[in-house]
Amino acid sequence: MKHILLVDGYNMIGAWQALRQLRDTDFESARDQLVELMAEYQAAEGYRVIIVFDAYLVQGNASRYRKSGVEVIYTAKNETADEHIERLTNELKGRHVQIHVATSDMTEQNVIFGNGALRKSARELEIEVGIAKSTIDQQVKDTNETSRFSRISASPEVMEKLERMRRGLS
């Protein structure tokens, strides 16, 4: 089963405390931080992540690009992120595809349920992202701890025996 997570970008920025505080001082950095957090989440969970940002009142064409492996979409003028996400849920659904939509917008949640997608509230996704980040941080720490002692690849049992020998304990 392929999992796709559609994220209402500004909804997350407005709901997550750290991003909301950053938004108040540097809006672009808040968007970049969300993309980086979602890239870590994508790597940890294996979801295809697509973040949709509103360009509803902004001049210009829609744009789409990849950043850190995450697909980022800015909607066209006069199109809301909600409308774009609704369209994507219809376009991407399939037999072996499970679509998840991250939004705390109740109206949007009702529409995506009707399209067969599952919802994640902003708070739920924030918690999941935090857990994924902690897991990645611990894996990096464990890897650094292991590689600090040795550049050879050995099982933990062998490494323990070598460490005991080094300390004169065996």
Rank of each mutant, 00 (worst) to 15 (best):
V49A: 09
S68P: 07
E83I: 06
S63F: 14
E83Y: 08
E45C: 11
S68Y: 15
Y74I: 05
R48C: 04
I73Q: 06
T103A: 06
V49W: 11
N110H: 15
V52S: 06
L88S: 06
E86P: 11
S63W: 15
V70Y: 00
I50Y: 12
R64P: 02
Q59A: 12
L92Y: 14
K67W: 14
K77E: 02
E83W: 09
T75W: 12
R48Q: 08
L92S: 02
Q109G: 04
R87N: 05
M106K: 05
T80W: 02
E71I: 10
D54P: 10
Q59K: 03
Q98N: 14
R64K: 03
E86M: 15
S104L: 07
E108G: 05
Q98Y: 15
H96C: 10
V49T: 13
T75S: 00
I51N: 05
A55N: 12
L57C: 11
T75Y: 08
K77G: 00
V58T: 09
H100F: 15
E83N: 13
T80G: 01
Y74E: 08
V101K: 02
H96K: 07
T103L: 01
E86S: 15
T107L: 14
Q98I: 15
G94F: 11
I99C: 05
N61S: 12
D105M: 06
G94A: 01
E108A: 03
H100A: 12
E91S: 07
H84L: 00
K93F: 15
N90E: 05
K93E: 11
V72T: 07
I51D: 02
Y56G: 05
T75D: 02
S68I: 09
A102D: 02
V72L: 06
V52W: 10
